[in-house]
Amino acid sequence: MLVTEQERLRDDLVKMADRFGRDRSALMPILQELKRTRYHISEYSMQVIADLLDIHPVEVSSVVSFYSFLEDKPQGQFVIRLCRTIACDMRGADHVARQLVNDLGIEFGETTPDGKFTLGWANCLGMCDQGPAMLVNEKVYTQVTPEKVHAILDECRGTFGMHATADKER
C-alpha cells in the first residue's frame, strides 16, 4: 500500500510524542525536532500535535508564532541568520548582509526558489568578540567578511546533509 506523505508525517509525530512525552511541556521539543528534520511546521502537523497532546491547535500555533526559531512557513534546508546586534554591527555586518543578498538573489526574510537557503537576521549570537557572526542551521561562523560569504554558501551547497542536522543525516 502506498504510504502517503501525510501518513508518514503523522507516524513521525507519533514517534516524537512517544519519545518526548505527551505533556504540554513536550510541545517545544516536538516542534524543534519537527523543524529540524522537515524544515516546515505546517498547519496539518500543528493539528496532529494538538491531537497528540490533547490541546487546542490554536495553542500550538500561538507557540510557533512566538519563537523566532519556529516558523510556520517552509524553511530552506540551510537557514542563515546574520547577527545584527551592536558589536557585529560595529564590525561591518551590513557589508556581509549586502553580499548575502547579492549572492543568494533573495532579500532577508525570503527563501531561495530551490528551497536550499532561507536568509534572516538574528539578535546577539554571543560571538561579539569575533564578529560579524552568522549561524547556518546550528553551525556558527565568525569574523565573516563579504568575500568569505561565497565560500560559506558553496560549502553548504556541496555538503548538503552534513550539518543540515547536527547529529545525523535524514
Binding site: 505533556d23 504540554r24 511541556s25 513536550a26 510541545l27 517545544m28 521539543p29 516542534l31 524543534q32 497532546l53 507557540v63 512566538f66 519563537y67 523566532s68 526559531f69 519556529l70 538574528a122 539578535n123 546577539c124
Partner: peptide
Amino acid sequence: RMGAGAYVCGEETALIESLEG
C-alpha cells in the same frame, strides 16, 4: 532543554513558561 530564539526567555518566569510549552 533548548530555547528557540527568544531573548525574553532569559527572564526567569518567561523561561519557565517556555519549558512548560
